[in-house]
Computed example of a mutant assay.
Amino acid sequence: MAQIDYYFTVLSPYAYLAGQRLEEIAARHGASITYKPLDIMALFPRTGGLAPKDRHPARMEYRAQELPRQAKKIGMPLNLRPAFWPTNAAPASYAIIAAQEAGGGDLGGLVHSVLRAVWVEEKDIAEDDVVQDCLKAAGFDPGLTFSGMLAGAETYAANLEDAVNAGVFGSPFYVVDDGAKFWGQDRLEDLDLHLAGKL
């Protein structure tokens, strides 16, 4: 059975546009997923990237065309300039880490709910009540926002180091336990084909 390390930031529009296709692909191939939320702003300088605010205007102009295009292509709503972006990604990331440790709910649903809160619902995922609503809707204890804080912070930092060591440089990024790597929601089809032994 394949195992997929899923590296992402809860601030990524491309992770949002992935929807729950990763979970569908994993279920189809009997693969397991380890969710690894990380601090993308700390990852960029360590792997040759730049934060959006520091990128050349030409790159940002392309991003402004590409995101709505990709959203339309897969039939998902998207607010290109959400009210609460960027925001502090740590609280929601800690909660996802705590939920993964606790088990018992829909982890993929939780991740997508947090991303949707940013890119569709105009909510600030740095706020405890927003994260708690996402936890509850996905079948987790909303109290994880408090009880999972310490372990979440430690794992969040460890995920960054794991990402650097694994050759990860963006979000979403999928690393299969056979060493295959896929960057971007537009490479999920390739991941699917790889797991099927066709690519």
Rank of each mutant, 00 (worst) to 15 (best):
D39Y: 15
A151P: 02
E161Y: 10
P142W: 14
W183K: 02
V111C: 01
G75P: 04
I97S: 07
V114Q: 08
A83P: 03
L144F: 11
K123R: 15
F182P: 05
G19W: 06
V176F: 02
K73S: 12
I74K: 12
R55H: 10
V118C: 01
A151E: 14
Y156N: 00
D192N: 12
F84K: 03
P172Q: 03
K181T: 04
L11W: 03
D39E: 12
R63A: 14
R59N: 07
F8N: 09
S147K: 15
G167K: 14
T47Q: 10
A196N: 06
S12M: 06
G108H: 05
D39G: 10
E61Q: 14
E154I: 15
T155M: 08
C134T: 00
A31Y: 10
R81D: 11
E23I: 10
K53I: 14
G105Q: 01
E189N: 11
A2W: 13
Q3H: 15
P91F: 07
P77D: 12
I25H: 13
E122Q: 15
E122N: 13
D106H: 07
G184R: 00
T34C: 12
P142D: 15
P142R: 13
S12V: 00
V10Y: 00
G75V: 05
E101H: 13
G179N: 05
Q20E: 10
A117D: 11
D178P: 02
A92P: 05
R46L: 14
L22Q: 12
I96D: 02
L67E: 08
R69E: 12
L110T: 00
G104S: 04
F173I: 07
G49Y: 01
A166K: 09
A15P: 10
L43Y: 03
G49H: 03
A64H: 15
K198G: 01
D128Q: 05
V120N: 00
M149F: 09
V114R: 06
D190S: 13
L135C: 03
S32D: 04
R28Q: 14
F44V: 13
L135G: 01
V120C: 02
G19L: 08
G48S: 11
K73V: 00
D106A: 03
L199V: 12
M1E: 14
L107R: 02
A166E: 02
K123Q: 14
W85T: 01
S147Q: 11
A26F: 05
A102P: 10
G103L: 00
D128E: 11
D178F: 06
G179I: 14
D186G: 07
I97K: 08
A166F: 10
D141C: 08
M76R: 15
Y35N: 04
E161M: 03
A90W: 01
L150E: 11
I74C: 10
D192I: 03
F84M: 00
A31H: 13
A98Q: 04
L150C: 07
E24G: 14
H29N: 13
